[in-house]
Amino acid sequence: MKIVTDKTPKVDIHQILTPDEIQGIIEHIHHYPQPRAAVLDALKLVQKRNGWVDDAQVAAIANMLSIAVSDVEGVATFFNRIYRQPVGRHVILVCDSIACYLTGYEALAEAFRRNLGIEFGQTTADGRFTLLPICCLGNCDKGASVLIDEDTYGPVLPEEVAMLLEQYL
């Protein structure tokens, strides 16, 4: 019987992470009493380069923090704004909370799908947009709401979607 352990594999972080990423993670480590507390900061820092975090980068972060890869993976998959697969240059998050649902979510979601020619979870063929649902944007008084990259919009009407997308070339 083979016993599986969750030891952090030794990887050459210098082949996986940039010098700026390594330095940034080191700086984040010093902000916390335990290095493992810097996992989310490290993931966000690494994601800035390509828009997502691959398996090698997860292993490199685990190595730097001296924790198990599964611990980093657990944080990466828990937070819905850490992407574990490639996404478009612009990520569109359409709020599907009850507040947005009651103020036009269904029509807004359909307008995005129609204008982009994709379904939720997909990326346009040109790599420009990825369309995702999100359970709440905290913009309930302005539903139906959308987050594109770091920009929050609301209320957004279906007829405004095409014009909104044109802002993100």
Rank of each mutant, 00 (worst) to 15 (best):
A76M: 09
D20N: 12
V161A: 00
F129I: 01
M1I: 07
A38M: 11
M64F: 05
P133F: 01
V91P: 03
I98L: 15
V4H: 12
G143F: 00
I16T: 11
I148N: 05
W52T: 02
C140K: 01
Y101W: 11
L43D: 05
I13P: 01
L165A: 05
L164Q: 04
V39L: 12
V146N: 02
F78M: 12
V75P: 00
A125N: 08
N50C: 10
L108W: 03
I118G: 04
I82V: 14
N115W: 00
L157T: 14
A99D: 11
A42Q: 02
T5L: 14
Y105T: 05
L116F: 04
K7Y: 13
A38S: 15
P86F: 02
I67A: 06
F78N: 12
I148Y: 08
P86L: 04
D126F: 05
Q34G: 00
I26N: 12
L147G: 02
V156Y: 00
V69M: 05
Y153K: 01
E150Y: 08
D6N: 13
A68N: 03
Q47D: 08
I29W: 03
N115I: 03
I3R: 12
H31D: 13
C140I: 11
A99K: 14
F79D: 15
D149S: 14
R114P: 00
V53G: 01
D12H: 10
L164Y: 03
P158W: 07
L102Y: 10
E150D: 14
L65N: 05
T103E: 15
K142L: 13
L132H: 07
I3V: 14
V94Y: 03
F129S: 06
G121M: 08
E110R: 12
T77A: 12
I29C: 11
G51P: 01
P155Y: 09
P155D: 08
V156G: 01
L40Y: 15
V58T: 07
T130Y: 09
V72C: 06
D141R: 15
Q23V: 03
T18I: 08
E160I: 03
E110Q: 15
H30M: 10
A38I: 09
V94D: 06
A107Q: 13
I82E: 06
P86T: 04
Q34T: 13
A76N: 02
A68C: 00
L147F: 05
M1W: 08
I61V: 13
A56W: 10
V11K: 10
D126P: 08
E27H: 09
V91F: 05
P19E: 08
K10R: 14
H28G: 02
P158H: 07
G154K: 02
L40I: 10
N50V: 00
S70A: 10
A109G: 14
A37D: 14
H90R: 10
P19Q: 09
R36K: 14
V156H: 03
V87S: 04
D55N: 13
N50H: 14
T18P: 06
E166Y: 00
M163F: 09
A162V: 13
R81T: 13
E119I: 02
A38Q: 05
E160M: 13
K2T: 12
E21G: 09
V4A: 10
V91W: 01
